Amino acid sequence: MKYIGFILFTVLTNAAAQLMLKHGMMTLGPLSFAGVNPIFKILQIVFSPWVFLGLCTFVISMASHLFVLSKVELSFAYPFLSLAYVAVAIFAYFVFREDLNAWRIAGIAAICVGTILIAQGGSGHEVVAEPIPSSDIKTSELAR
């Protein structure tokens, strides 16, 4: 539980990135590649302000997730990422006026319950990972 703050930071930056990407794509309007060089169109999308900010936020989220993975068990840390769906669904309801019906609320509740169970039942202890020496594995052994 020592690294729960970093895990939640990863979740929130992941959710924030999704919201920024959605906003960015909404400001660009419907996509059409007709009569336009696809490479130019992709660059136009990637470098539009909100999309670019969302992608940068994803990089921050991934850096945080890599830090977390270096400290705790994967089976403990990874399920917490499902909380990003919860955050996105709630914020999308308020910001983009997206539908939040009974089925989605039930799914959100199930995700929350599952995450709580994992947090209670998982160790979340710091893991000291020893690197696998590359000299121990030979290419000829992998071919077998």
Rank of each mutant, 00 (worst) to 15 (best):
M1N: 05
Y3T: 03
G5L: 09
G5F: 11
I7R: 06
I7K: 08
F9H: 02
V11E: 04
L12W: 03
N14F: 09
N14E: 12
A16R: 03
Q18N: 14
Q18H: 15
L19E: 12
K22E: 05
G24M: 08
M25Q: 13
M26Q: 14
T27M: 14
T27K: 13
G29K: 04
S32Q: 04
F33T: 11
F33H: 06
F33W: 07
F33R: 04
F33L: 14
A34M: 11
A34E: 15
G35E: 11
V36S: 02
P38R: 11
I39Y: 09
I39F: 14
F40P: 00
K41D: 01
L43W: 05
Q44R: 02
V46G: 00
V46E: 00
S48A: 01
P49Y: 01
P49K: 01
V51P: 02
V51E: 02
L53R: 03
G54K: 03
G54N: 05
L55R: 04
L55Y: 11
L55G: 10
T57I: 12
F58H: 07
I60D: 05
M62W: 15
A63E: 06
F67K: 14
V68G: 01
V68H: 02
K71Y: 05
V72F: 01
E73A: 12
L74E: 10
S75W: 09
A77P: 08
A77Y: 04
F80V: 05
S82E: 05
A84R: 12
A84D: 08
Y85E: 02
Y85N: 09
A89Q: 10
F91H: 11
F91D: 07
Y93A: 11
V95N: 08
V95R: 07
V95A: 13
F96V: 11
E98V: 07
E98A: 04
E98C: 08
D99N: 14
L100F: 00
N101T: 05
W103R: 10
W103F: 13
R104N: 04
I105S: 06
A106S: 07
G107F: 03
A109M: 08
A110G: 08
I111K: 02
C112G: 12
G114S: 00
T115F: 03
I116N: 00
I116Y: 10
I116H: 00
I116K: 00
I118D: 04
I118T: 11
A119Q: 08
A119V: 03
Q120K: 08
Q120N: 03
G121Q: 05
G121S: 03
G122S: 01
G122T: 00
S123K: 15
H125I: 04
E126Y: 08
V127Y: 02
V128I: 15
E130G: 12
P131Y: 05
S135Q: 13
D136H: 06
I137V: 15
K138D: 02
K138F: 01
K138L: 06
T139H: 12
T139G: 12
S140M: 05
L142W: 10
A143P: 01
